[in-house]
Structures are given as C-alpha cells and as structure tokens.
Computed example of a mutant assay.
Amino acid sequence: MAKQYKTLYPVKYYRDYVAHNIRPDGREFDHYRPVILNSDSISNLEGSAIAKIGKTTVICGIKAEFCQPKPDKPNEGFLIPNLDLPPLCSPKFKSGPPSDQAQAATKVIDDIITNSECIDLTDLCIHKEKLAWCLYTDLICLDHDGAIIDASLLALFTALKNVRLPSVEYDAALDNKIVNLEQWHHLKLHCTPVSSTFAIFEDVIFMDPTAEEESLCQGIITVVTKNDKICSILKPGGATIAEPNLLDCVKMSTARSKLLTKLMETASEESKDEPMYMPPKLEVLSA
C-alpha cells in the first residue's frame, strides 16, 4: 500500500516524512549517504578512480596524449573533462548525442576546474609553442541516484592525484620527441575542490539528495569549497533560499569537505584493491 501511495502522491508522501523530521530513506535532513572511493581502478590509464555516493556511481579515466599548444596560450597544456550519462545509469537518459543534462554538468565541472585554479596548465607544457600534454578526463556515470556533480568531482580529483607522466625531451630543430619511461612524475595539484549538493523541499533543506528527492524539490544548490574556503555556489534557478539557510549549507559543505579531502588523500595512498569508505553520519552539522 505504501508503494502505491508513494506513486500516486509523491509530494504528500514526502511531506508526511518531513513532518516527523526524517526522510523516506531514514536519514535526517543534514545527513549524507555513505561514500566509497577506489583509486587506480584501470591499470592502462594515466589515472583512474571510482566514486560512489549512496547508489550514485561515477568512474573516471584519464588518458594523456601529446598535442600542440594554442597560439594564444603557447605555454599551456590542456585538461578536457567530459561527463557521459548513458541509458545504463538511468532510464531517463537515451542513447545518442549527449543529453542537455550531461552537457550542462560537463560545463559545470570545467568551470570548477578553471575557477578553483587546482591545476597550473603551464605544468603540462613540454616545449613552448611546440609540444604539451593533453589530459582527456572521461567521466562515465554507472548509476545516477542524485548528486552527480559531487560524485564526479570525487572521482575526477582522486584520479588526478594519481596521474603520472613520463619525462619527455623535445628537439625542436628535428621535431623529435624522446620519452623516458624510467622517469615519471606526478601531476601537481594546488587544491582539491569538493562539492556538496542540497535540495530545497518546501521549507526544509535536504543534504546530499537522491535522484527522487531532486525530482520533487523546488531548487538545487551545489556548494563547492577548496581549502575550507568557498570556491563557487551553483543554483540553477528554482525556489529562493533564505540567507540563514544558505549559510547553513556552506557550513555543512565545509565540514563535509574536510572529511572527503582526507578520504581522497587516503584512497590515493592505498592499494587499488582496497576501496576507502566513509560512514554516512556526520557530526557537527546542526546549525
């Protein structure tokens, strides 16, 4: 009976739970789902990782190739993210060209990378105007159950922490590259942005919403932090949010980002066969 009631009256179903200060999955409003990270999941790539937040699962693979720098930026390489939302991850996505949501999410991820200044693209330049590294970061969602930006950033930056590039010598006169496979270096990250997504459901805020909660809410907010500071706040339309509630979102996001950053660092140091786990409950989240 409860399943039929939920199907017929989904909003009323959620209101009944909210009236008792709890969500249908048993979480309180300010609690997030379990997080699992696995680093170096794919051995034939320069960097890879799998991130899982609840059921939402994203795998990231990074492939490095040689390229020529742009004429207007002769001493910079490239970092090109791309998020794929295939029909495999959710029935609301169809096969064919990238969906609008996939393109919008890819643009958000690219903006976060640029605005956070997490990577100095000059580190990817091998020889000015002639040769540079291009890092293709492909993100594939295997299961979409909300907070796709959060899971994508976790997978992306865990993979970037493990990128190793060989030493390259370039002879501009002969246009000859010499790759030394005995000398490798890690990609330098200046910071690791972490995001937390919130859903506005009438007069309450859900932290780390599921796909169902996102579909029923009146607005979505994604708070991105780096080094305990706000990097960006994304709110694509929807209902307005009061300033005290927004400050609560920032506070919760900052507290969670410390744990997620530590989780990424630990996952990068551990064996790829031992995924790292963070329990769902978070202390000091109440406003």
Rank of each mutant, 00 (worst) to 15 (best):
K3H: 14
Y5M: 12
K12Y: 07
Y13E: 04
Y17N: 02
D30M: 09
Y32S: 13
P34N: 03
N38H: 10
N38E: 15
L45T: 15
E46T: 04
A51Q: 02
K55Y: 09
K63P: 06
A64G: 10
P69G: 03
G77M: 06
P81K: 02
L83D: 03
L88K: 03
C89N: 06
P91C: 02
K92I: 15
G96M: 03
D100C: 01
A102L: 09
A104V: 12
A105S: 12
A105R: 07
T106W: 01
I109D: 04
E117V: 03
I119M: 11
H127W: 06
Y136T: 02
D138K: 01
D150S: 13
D150Y: 11
L154S: 02
A155R: 07
L156M: 15
T158L: 12
T158H: 00
A159T: 07
D171H: 11
N180R: 11
L187I: 08
C191F: 07
D203S: 12
D203W: 04
D203N: 14
D208V: 08
E213G: 05
E213D: 05
S215T: 12
C217N: 05
I221M: 00
V224E: 02
P236E: 12
T240A: 09
D248H: 07
K272H: 14
D273I: 09
E274M: 12
P275D: 03
A287M: 10
